[in-house]
Simulated scan of single mutants.
Amino acid sequence: MNKWKWYQYNKNELEKIKQSEHKNEILSQKPWLDKIKMNDTNYLEISHAVNGAFTLKGSLVYDQNFHDEREYKIFQFFLTQDKLVTVDLDLSLFKHANIEQMLRKIAKADKPIDGFLFILLELLAEFLIKIDDFEDELRELIWKIHKKNKTSILEDIYKRRHDLLVWSNLLIPLKELIMGIEEACHEILNDNKTYALTAKRIKRALYLIDEYEHEIHSIITLEEVISTHRGNEIMKTLTVMTAIFTPAMAWGAIWGMNFKFMPELEWKYGYFISIIIIALSMIAVYIYLKMKGWTGDLLKGKKKGKFFK
């Protein structure tokens, strides 16, 4: 590096360093080394010395399987004014970055903070590419709802919502880390283009996640409105059908009685007359409901590409 050092290790190598007798300036940070082995989540710790020196240490989850909470990648970092230490940082996960070019930029950096910002900058670029893929999935879901909405789509909607929660869980600690960098070394970040670009990139990523969250919320609200409307239509249909067949049930109850003296039993055309009376009664009820406007279009089938028809 240019007047500073970058140490890259994995947990196994750190154990060997702690057990060796060779002097290494990282060994002076034994509490941090001891914490690495146990730590499996995001954390950030900032300290300032009397002479103005700072220490920024912590860990960051930088890759997550969206289907398995136990499958993720986390790296530890230790940053001072003259060195940067990273543990378990796998650069091969930066699939869309030019690793050689990235390492050259880090090597030319004047300060370790600049080198660390280059790493975060590439990490955010990787995130933004994956967020663009999420945008394509969300757009496909929006049009799927319009073309052919059904209950199974609710599963896709809540999967996308879960993805947004995972993205927020990845970006918020990263935002905190960038704010922590500003807190630790704000005096040397004046006119720092790398820091400004990193801050803008995290702001853009969080903005996208926030906007997609609004879209998902709108989709869920739309589904709730459609479900409520269709449920009301079903209940209205059942109510109308019950009202229409009420005369038939009433007349059937009367003529189903077993009294000894029932004049209708002697009617020659009583069967046909009863059918006519029942039919006319049902038609009369339907006409009454129609005049009141209580039937509407609820008996019409759903048309393709329509939400409420």
Rank of each mutant, 00 (worst) to 15 (best):
2 N>L: 09
7 Y>V: 01
7 Y>C: 09
7 Y>G: 03
8 Q>T: 15
10 N>R: 09
11 K>R: 14
21 E>F: 02
21 E>I: 03
24 N>F: 03
25 E>K: 07
28 S>H: 07
29 Q>F: 15
30 K>G: 03
33 L>Q: 13
34 D>V: 12
37 K>N: 07
50 V>M: 04
52 G>N: 05
53 A>G: 08
57 K>W: 07
63 D>V: 04
80 T>C: 03
84 L>N: 06
84 L>W: 05
86 T>F: 14
86 T>C: 11
92 S>W: 03
103 L>P: 01
103 L>Y: 04
104 R>Y: 08
105 K>V: 00
108 K>N: 10
113 I>M: 15
116 F>C: 08
121 L>P: 00
123 L>C: 04
131 I>C: 00
132 D>L: 05
134 F>V: 04
141 L>I: 05
147 K>P: 01
147 K>D: 14
147 K>R: 12
153 I>Y: 13
156 D>F: 08
160 R>P: 01
162 H>R: 15
175 K>H: 14
182 E>I: 09
183 E>A: 15
187 E>D: 15
189 L>F: 08
189 L>T: 10
193 K>F: 13
197 L>T: 08
200 K>E: 09
202 I>W: 06
207 Y>D: 11
209 I>C: 13
223 E>K: 10
227 S>C: 01
232 N>W: 08
235 M>D: 04
237 T>I: 08
239 T>H: 12
239 T>Q: 12
242 T>S: 12
245 F>P: 08
245 F>H: 06
248 A>Y: 09
254 I>T: 08
257 M>K: 11
258 N>T: 13
264 E>V: 15
274 S>T: 15
280 L>F: 13
280 L>G: 11
285 V>G: 03
290 K>M: 05
291 M>C: 11
295 T>K: 00
305 G>R: 04
308 F>L: 08
309 K>N: 10
